Simulated scan of single mutants.
Amino acid sequence: MASIRKEMALPLAAEAVWNVFADVGAVHTRLAPGFVTDCVLEEGSRLVTFANGVTVRELLVDVDDARRRLAYSVAGGSASHHHATFEVLPEGEGSRLVWTADVLPHEVAPVFEMMMSQGMETMARSFQTPNSTHSG
């Protein structure tokens, strides 16, 4: 199984960053605007549309406020297996975002790695720009 891990330090407190991740239906407006163009919540999942036109169903496995951890799995698509987590960890006066995805088959890992890199770049810009989308 291919495991992809991305990390970045953020200037905001972990609670403020987690507030954005916990708002699972607003990924297109609060977390990754431009990279994600639409998000529709459904029972136990969300339908996410990316700027490249790809739409995926993400099964929401767990949204853990105490641990500031979001776990999800993509159903269908090019991977026979996909499971990912976002963790928001306190780090000094800011926080650290850790995004891990496990995928099969190994051959699809480069596509997921590229999408995750683009997603992290978008999130970094979003969290670096002071605006009201990060407040409760």
Rank of each mutant, 00 (worst) to 15 (best):
P90L: 09
R30K: 15
G34H: 07
N52A: 14
T100N: 09
F86W: 15
E93C: 02
M8Q: 10
A14T: 03
V20R: 01
A71V: 15
A14F: 03
R46P: 00
A32N: 04
R30S: 02
H81W: 10
H28S: 13
A101I: 06
T55Q: 10
S95F: 04
A124W: 07
N52E: 14
R125W: 12
M114V: 15
A2P: 00
P33C: 10
A26M: 06
P105I: 09
E121T: 15
L41T: 04
V24F: 04
F50I: 05
A22S: 13
A79I: 08
A9G: 10
A22E: 11
E121Y: 08
T85H: 11
F50Y: 15
L10T: 03
A51N: 08
E87S: 14
P33G: 10
E15G: 03
V20A: 04
T85E: 12
E87C: 11
N19P: 00
H106Q: 14
T100C: 05
M115T: 14
F21I: 04
P11N: 08
L60T: 01
T100W: 10
Q118D: 14
A13T: 06
T133L: 12
P90A: 04
R46K: 12
A124E: 14
V56C: 08
R67I: 05
E7Y: 00
H82K: 07
N52G: 03
S135D: 13
A51W: 06
L12N: 04
H81M: 10
R30G: 01
A124V: 07
F86K: 04
G94E: 07
T129W: 14
D23E: 07
H106K: 09
S73P: 01
S73G: 11
S78L: 13
V27D: 00
L12M: 08
H82E: 04
L12A: 04
K6D: 03
R67H: 14
W99V: 05
P33I: 10
V108Y: 06
A71G: 04
F50Q: 13
V74E: 03
R5M: 10
V48E: 02
T37W: 01
E7R: 11
D38A: 15
V111I: 15
E113K: 11
L10Q: 02
I4C: 03
K6I: 06
P11W: 08
T129E: 15
